[in-house]
Amino acid sequence: MTSRFRVIAALAPLLLLTACAPKQLVRNQGDAASLSQQAAREQQLANADHWVLQGRLAVSDGKEGVPGSDFTWTQNGASYELIFRAPVSGKSYRLSGGPDGAELDGVDGGPQRGADAEALMRRALHWEVPLDELRAWVLGLRAHGAQADLSFGDDRLPSVLQQDGWTVSYLAWDTTRQPPLPLKVFAEKPPYKVRLAIQSWSLQ
């Protein structure tokens, strides 16, 4: 087994988490109440940059994949740390960085560094993960920059977000929190997929 395959097998699982199988989403065009509620959520979360989320992550390039990895994502202002734990080998991988670049630990050959996390993952793991946008999407927000189109569920929370060529589906929300936060976030830009099943949020 090549080192490239071992890394992909451990870190880039097939995006079909059995417990998170997609359901039929309600896709209502935003009425005044839905858009007003979303605007209020985005205002409340606009400065949210200190949080920890834990759950399961799976990614796919349309070719390779194994069951998803446990992961922890810590955001501390402009700095971040993502720790992945491969379910079969138990080996851990750590992606960390900030404005000055990114570092990936745990891969064969020692730590690898790059100017930004997306480019580093693309080079080292052959992933296509929109990490900058995902930082907003995991909060249920539109990322800055590209035009975004939103559809809403019957609960007036985002159901589908289309932005920068990606389709982001929200399959579950934690409505016990105010404002509500996503629990299942599936992003797809064929052939690439990223799926997150969030088990816990700690938002400061």
Results as ranks from 00 to 15, higher is better:
1 M>F: 05
1 M>I: 07
6 R>M: 07
8 I>N: 06
9 A>H: 13
9 A>Q: 13
11 L>C: 15
11 L>D: 05
12 A>M: 15
13 P>H: 07
15 L>T: 13
19 A>F: 07
20 C>N: 11
22 P>R: 03
23 K>V: 13
24 Q>D: 11
27 R>C: 07
29 Q>L: 12
31 D>Y: 09
32 A>T: 14
34 S>K: 10
37 Q>S: 11
38 Q>V: 05
38 Q>C: 01
38 Q>L: 15
40 A>C: 00
43 Q>Y: 02
45 L>K: 14
46 A>C: 01
47 N>S: 15
48 A>D: 01
49 D>A: 15
51 W>L: 13
56 R>A: 08
60 S>M: 05
61 D>K: 03
62 G>H: 05
63 K>W: 09
63 K>R: 11
64 E>Q: 14
66 V>Q: 13
67 P>L: 08
69 S>C: 14
71 F>N: 11
72 T>K: 12
73 W>T: 08
73 W>L: 12
75 Q>R: 14
85 R>G: 02
86 A>P: 09
89 S>H: 09
94 R>P: 01
95 L>H: 08
96 S>Y: 10
97 G>E: 03
97 G>T: 05
103 E>W: 01
103 E>G: 00
104 L>E: 07
105 D>Q: 14
105 D>P: 00
106 G>E: 05
108 D>N: 11
109 G>H: 05
112 Q>G: 01
113 R>S: 14
118 E>C: 01
120 L>R: 02
123 R>H: 04
125 L>I: 15
126 H>C: 01
128 E>K: 14
129 V>M: 14
129 V>K: 00
140 G>Y: 07
140 G>D: 02
141 L>D: 03
142 R>F: 00
142 R>I: 00
145 G>R: 08
145 G>S: 06
150 L>T: 07
155 D>T: 05
156 R>L: 12
156 R>C: 01
157 L>Q: 04
157 L>G: 04
159 S>G: 10
163 Q>N: 08
164 D>F: 03
165 G>C: 10
170 Y>T: 02
173 W>P: 06
176 T>H: 04
180 P>H: 00
182 P>Y: 12
183 L>D: 02
183 L>T: 07
187 A>F: 10
187 A>Q: 07
189 K>T: 06
189 K>C: 10
191 P>R: 04
194 V>N: 04
196 L>V: 09
198 I>G: 08
199 Q>K: 12
201 W>F: 08
201 W>V: 07
204 Q>D: 15
